[in-house]
């Protein structure tokens, strides 16, 4: 069980951005989504998360066999889907710790003030985890993404994914803008999420990150369509030969097959 995307077609305005896309993200697996710029990778993440500017024209999105296609983003989040955006916006005035506490409270459910932790252990946990992933814990007192470096933004999103304990984690280019040390740290925690049994959908341009996170499955998306799905070797083929070659090779393969 996990996340199933079934024959999904979606558009933004008049533009169709996903065409009949099907894929699974199983628990305890990393499914890498690769593709060139503008191939629909981020759109796929947004549509799974329920971003309202996208319209699902056809198909379905299932979490543990239950359709979530018609739920608003906040309910999808509460059901266990977490999206780490590629370039998350600044939220002036709101401390990172306040956002995490509010989100954790929502996840736990129940009544009471959103700003007061319903599980006080989260305070200690966020300090410890921040340190572990190489963030100065003072970042928790800073406003969400305000003045954060590129690396801090990425790690802050990973920190939230680890703390909020989702079932499915969608990471949209978590390696962009990171140096090699940053990539290694992010990779370590993606592997940790997998070990914890979470399903990870890992969106990336390049196979560089995949040297440190060996995906269980790789899907290549071009022009909003799935052109290839295979194991880790597909990522290596992309790295060695490029997207155009992969598109050609798989088209030929499926024609012959």
């Amino acid at each position: 069980m996990g996340l199933e995307v079934v024959n999904l077609t979606a558009r933004i305005g008049e533009k169709t951005v996903l065409k009949n896309v099907s894929l699974n993200v199983n628990y305890g697996e990393v499914h890498a989504i690769m593709g060139p710029n503008g191939s629909g990778k981020s759109s796929l993440a947004y549509v799974i998360m329920g971003r309202e500017i996208y319209e699902v024209v056809d198909g379905d999105i299932l979490l543990d066999g239950e359709s979530i296609k018609d739920l608003p983003p906040e309910e999808r989040a509460i059901k266990g889907i977490f999206l780490a955006m590629q370039d998350p916006p600044q939220v002036p005035g709101v401390r990172l710790s306040s956002l995490i506490i509010a989100a954790a409270n929502k996840k736990l459910g129940g009544e009471g003030e959103l700003g007061r932790p319903r599980d006080p252990r989260i305070l200690k946990r966020m300090m410890e985890l921040a340190k572990e992933i190489g963030l100065d814990p003072s970042i928790l007192q800073r406003e969400v993404n305000v003045g954060f470096s590129g690396g801090e933004r990425k790690r802050s999103e990973i920190l939230q994914a680890l703390l909020l304990d989702p079932k499915i984690v969608i990471l949209d280019e978590p390696d962009s803008g990171l140096d090699i040390d940053g990539i290694k740290i992010v990779a370590q925690y993606i592997n940790k999420l997998r070990e914890q049994g979470k399903g990870v959908m890992l969106i990336t341009h390049y196979a560089r990150l995949l040297q440190y996170v060996k995906p269980d499955r790789v899907t290549v998306l071009i022009g909003g369509e799935v052109v290839a799905t295979d194991g880790y070797e597909l990522a290596r083929l992309v790295e060695e030969k490029g997207y155009a070659y992969v598109k050609q090779a798989f088209r030929k393969g499926s024609a012959q097959g």
């Binding site: 906040e74 709101v94 929502k106 959103l114």
Partner: peptide, 22 residues
């Protein structure tokens, strides 16, 4: 902006409350 905060499980009213409090 709203979408980002909704992905953390917050409704529109809760987002407004969080921003004002913040």
């Amino acid at each position: 902006f709203t979408f980002y905060l909704k992905t953390r499980g917050l409704s529109e009213d809760e987002i407004t409350g969080l921003l004002i409090e913040g």
